[in-house]
């Protein structure tokens, strides 16, 4: 298959060893326990689920071990101190952690004062419990994301793999796939259009 040869060292999804399955509802319950009563046992559960996943990603990217450990430490301490700002109807715990980890790494790379990161700015607002209606919206969004993933064409899946697993820039992807930058950008737009469409339905 063409896709697999161009992916090089990436293995297709099915051939990868499965990590332990994620139950986001369990993660959310632990987040609530940490937020409301500083529950250390719940926090340890979060650590045991999240830290090994961060470690695997940082190893894959070739981040040096001591730097990787510092990043994991920063991210996990952030999870503790910001647990009360997590709002379940805005997204999964893992996506929230993904954004925290990205921001920690941007700030560490700069070694200057932290930037203000705002795409999850609603997390900075006081929590409000889900109304039944919001819960329905949230559940249907999660279902739509699953559909988007399942129906993603190979060419677009490859783009997401290169962006999020290998963390390549547009220009680096163009070099790797031997494609013009414009073609890479249009594949990115097609992939995002696919996501939008799945969310609209």
């Amino acid at each position: 298959m063409q896709l697999i040869s161009t992916l090089g060292n990436l293995k297709p999804m099915s051939a990868r060893p499965p990590g332990s399955l994620i139950d986001d509802l369990a993660l959310q319950a632990w987040m609530r326990a940490v937020a409301s009563s500083r529950d250390k046992q719940a926090y340890e559960q979060l650590f045991d689920c999240i830290a090994p996943r961060l470690k695997a990603q940082l190893t894959r990217l070739g981040v040096a071990r001591s730097e990787a450990e510092d990043i994991i430490q920063d991210v996990m301490v952030n999870v503790w101190i910001k647990a009360g700002l997590y709002v379940a109807e805005k997204g999964s715990v893992l996506a929230w952690v993904f954004v925290i980890a990205r921001n920690v790494r941007i700030d560490r790379a700069r070694k200057l004062k932290p930037q203000v990161h705002l795409d999850f700015s609603e997390y900075d607002e006081p929590d409000s419990r889900d109304t039944p209606e919001e819960e329905t919206v949230r559940n249907s969004q999660a279902a739509a994301l699953k559909v988007a993933m399942a129906t993603l064409p190979d060419e677009q899946r490859e783009i997401y793999e290169l962006i999020f697993r290998e963390e390549l820039t547009q220009a680096e992807i163009a070099v790797k796939l031997k494609l013009p930058l414009g073609t890479v950008k249009s594949r990115m737009r097609l992939a995002q259009a696919h996501l939008r469409k799945a969310l609209e339905n």
Binding site: P17, G19, I50, R53, F98, E161, F164, R165
Partner: peptide, 11 residues
């Protein structure tokens, strides 16, 4: 999607 691709599979 970022979380799915970078954090979901490997530990």
């Amino acid at each position: 999607l970022g979380a799915t691709f970078s954090l979901k599979d490997d530990v």
